[in-house]
Amino acid sequence: MSKFKNTVARGELGSTIFRYVFLVGSILFVLFPLYWMVITSLKTEGELFAKAQTFFPKELTWEHYFDPVNGIFASGSAFPQFFINSMIVSFVSMILCLVIGAYAAYSLARFKMKNNRSEKISFLILTARMLPPIVVVIPMYLIMQQLGLINTHWAMLIVYTGFNLPFVVWMLKAFFEEIPEELEESAMIDGASRMKSFHIIVLPLVLPGFVATSIFTLILTWNEFMFAMFLLNSTNMMTLPAGISTFITQYETNWGALTAAATISIIPVLIFSFIAQKHLVRGMTMGAVKG
């Protein structure tokens, strides 16, 4: 017995060392690009293009952010407008998604339609999520052009709300399915209608689910690039990813400003995602795996 214990202990030591090396390695692997982005945005022009790269900048500067001429927050810079546009588009489409999607999710979670229809509809909604956006974006571009909606936030709201709905419906459906049906039944016995018991009993209970779903919807919209690039073409309408992509050609060598823009653009996403951490896995798998 003691011999057995010894071998286990010896084997454990080797694997523990290997484990920690692997863990530290993967942490460095993940964090280094982010660190590099942030410090590049804080380096002076001289240090950026110096022959010897520095891992810890000798001198920190905010010039890429706040310089009145070249900074991304300078009055002539389009960056603040990108940020505002992203905010408008993501928040409005998130609210639309939740309001429209919640009823659909509730319907799919609760009602048994004949011929297994609710499962078929769920599947149909899921296939919409699987559709590659490129299949839709080119005809969408032509349609929006004919409707005169190119380069408007209306076009973005329609597209983003529609495209995020499958995600919202699937995720909320998983949350609704966890609420015991008896709660609504007892409310209905007390005389409340189906919808009243939904609004008064069920909605407050899935509030955490709503928060998580809304944050994931925000992040999806905030990061979306392809639709924004196709449907928006003036800098005062562009969202952040589309705007930053124009910076790449415009400031090919101005890495300070480019990384500063990248850094600012990820801050809201970081804040959102830490709030919804607990629901992360569920969000990434649309409720297929409980996290």
Binding site: I27, V30, L31, L34, I219, W222, N223, E224, F225, L240, P241, I244, S245, A262, S265, I266, V269, L270, F272, S273, F274, Q277, L280, M284
Partner: peptide, 12 residues
């Protein structure tokens, strides 16, 4: 820590 990469815009 690992949440960060997957929350970022692929473009960024």
């Amino acid at each position: 820590l690992l949440i960060i990469p997957m929350m970022l815009s692929p473009l960024v």
